[in-house]
Amino acid sequence: MGMNQCQEVLRHLAEYVDDELSQELKARIEAHLEKCAFCRNLVKSYEKTINLFKKAHNLELDKNKLERLKNYLISNLFK
């Protein structure tokens, strides 16, 4: 396993998971991932992190807050 290839995966991780890489680079990274458990795990943990970050902010719409905001704006804007 070449450390250089692992470094390459690390360097392009964001673009790889966001699917912003050229075909060629993407194929090279995928070929490396097939051979390298360390990098596979890195990719997985990176994607997992993004998902958890998103889910932690999946706030439900609080209708009371929205109503309070609306009333606040109406009383301040339409005098």
Binding site: L10, N41, S45, K48, N51, F53, K55, A56
Partner: peptide, 28 residues
């Protein structure tokens, strides 16, 4: 730090199990 470890066994666990209140706090 980044190359110290590529992710422990937690990466295979379902999100629901991972997203505890404490984990939320760590993210924040």
């Amino acid at each position: 730090q980044v190359m110290e470890g590529s992710g422990g066994e937690w990466v295979s666990k379902p999100d629901d199990e991972l997203l505890t209140e404490e984990a939320n706090k760590i993210i924040g």
